[in-house]
Design a protein around this nucleic acid. Sequence first.
DNA 1: GATGAATGAGCTTTCATTCAT
DNA 2: GATGAATGAAAGCTCATTCAT
Lengths: 182, 182, 182, 182
Amino acid sequence: MSAALELFAEQGFETTTVPMIADKAVVGAGTIYRYFTNKEALGNALFQDCVRQFSEAIQRGYPAEGNAREQFRHIFCRMVEFAKEQERAFYLLETHRHARYLSEESHELFREMMDFLRAYFRAGREQGTIRSMPSDALIAIVYGAFAALYKAIRAGKIQETPDLIDSVEQACWDAVRVHPHG
Amino acid sequence: MSAALELFAEQGFETTTVPMIADKAVVGAGTIYRYFTNKEALGNALFQDCVRQFSEAIQRGYPAEGNAREQFRHIFCRMVEFAKEQERAFYLLETHRHARYLSEESHELFREMMDFLRAYFRAGREQGTIRSMPSDALIAIVYGAFAALYKAIRAGKIQETPDLIDSVEQACWDAVRVHPHG
Amino acid sequence: MSAALELFAEQGFETTTVPMIADKAVVGAGTIYRYFTNKEALGNALFQDCVRQFSEAIQRGYPAEGNAREQFRHIFCRMVEFAKEQERAFYLLETHRHARYLSEESHELFREMMDFLRAYFRAGREQGTIRSMPSDALIAIVYGAFAALYKAIRAGKIQETPDLIDSVEQACWDAVRVHPHG
Amino acid sequence: MSAALELFAEQGFETTTVPMIADKAVVGAGTIYRYFTNKEALGNALFQDCVRQFSEAIQRGYPAEGNAREQFRHIFCRMVEFAKEQERAFYLLETHRHARYLSEESHELFREMMDFLRAYFRAGREQGTIRSMPSDALIAIVYGAFAALYKAIRAGKIQETPDLIDSVEQACWDAVRVHPHG
DNA sequence: GATGAATGAGCTTTCATTCAT
DNA sequence: GATGAATGAAAGCTCATTCAT
């Protein structure tokens, strides 16, 4: 799995061959087929694993009782942590989430994870803190911005610093929050 | 080219075979090789074409004399228009920009196009209208949010309406602008 | 034809493409098919042309009334001349004479040309000047040695000089003539 | 390897397809690529194998202490044996030695093998037994004559008999030796 | 009559998958 | 249960040949 993660994230699904994965994992190619029906199944298992980790990362320690601002910061900071610590998992999530090899089950799991964010935005909207827009649009803005930022960091175009992260977090919050006298 | 655009955008570069493109274009497979050295060359030509179109789209009619807010709206609305009218070209740009088959020339062209946005943000930052952050981070926020939005629209998760676009444009502006008493 | 000769001699039949020939001949590829049924037919026409030229070269001015030694020298010197002046034609003859693309007609023509040499050796054998061996073996020795020599010259391994040619001619004569008390 | 030898000798390198070799070897086409990088590599491996066998054949049991005549007979008889027993290997050697697919390494190996013959002729020349001619010319004569003979035998134009071989050997010796009062 | 763009059969090569060991 | 050599379908690509211009 970790060999596959590394290779899929680095080179993509199609370009990575099963023997490559086997080599990196120091097992025979046939062994992989004892654990996964085929390459697609391996890809899906891996993707789902990443989704679950991400999901857990943003939900663990969520301040259910806090205010929208605090909750937003929690989610954002957890995403940052996850993207840093599980760099490849995050990158795989981001680059493969529209891949053709993903099963309906994988898509479903991804959707479920997104439901958490959707719920957050719905609640915030209802209490007047968050802009009046479809949750999916809000998610697109925040998650899209965040993902693009991390791709740029990964590509070496931006230096990751605590200050930068703070600024971006604030920027994203400003994007979704209601502005008084707006 | 348009057959290739459709297929590369729909299925990705690796998954699309040359015979598929030939079939869709209603030509023989060999014919493609009269115009492009190989599949990679076709992919690069197509990508560069999309970059050029996008570049032209956001720069044509740019209000060089307007204020930062107006300029931002111009860029954003042009991107919206482009994403709507050249849906597949925009999607290709977004999904393939880190693809391994792209040549240095293709990357360079993409970078040049981004320079325009970079210049906009630099100017805005210098005159105190835009947040004090690296241009690439600002680009990531706006372009990332926008791209994610259009992927969501494309996936049918959000309905595209003028109101929605207006809101998102405002949200993105709020993300990058300086907020008084901030 | 001369473009084809050059290319077939230089690169072989299979490796030479019809468009290559057309380009070198400064005609359209289709034009070639107005004069030859197909690539094979062109190859055969060319080969036969070379055979005819070679045949004529060794038979013109043949001293029918001379002695075996003189006749041998005539044949050998004509072969040398031909190999020098029609370098590519000779090389084609030598390298393609067992090629699969040659028609029965081409082989027949080659055989006819060889009949001249066969007749020479038969006569010489009958009058006791030439060794008692099958003509084809004698031909193999002289023609084989000669061909190998010219391939070596062509490959730059030997320098062609009148002295060398004289020596080789003498060596070949010594190979086929009857040696007294031998 | 032996399937490839048969086909390359029979039909040439270009005309033989990898599936043909695989079929004859009763393996899958892909299997060939587990052992050879590509078709060219297979061709070179095969050629080098033939060169090595030929080289060993003529050098094994070489009468280093014998006189030039005995040494010549040794070399010639070994070539005959090799050509008989390894018919196809000899034919491949002869027909492919100027082929374009051969690597520098293959050419080098062939050259090394020829060095043995070159050394023989040089020594003979120095002691006055062999004609005063470049070694490469002498090699061309003997090897060329021999090769042509075997091609004629192979083509069925001559019957191979011990007598014939004896005669040809004598003829070749007469071609290269110094003739008294000559 | 000459052209050369278009064709598609057929080549070389790759790689997901199997299965005897 | 693990292996990795063997497989062959299918990919990218070439080029002899055709035919509308």
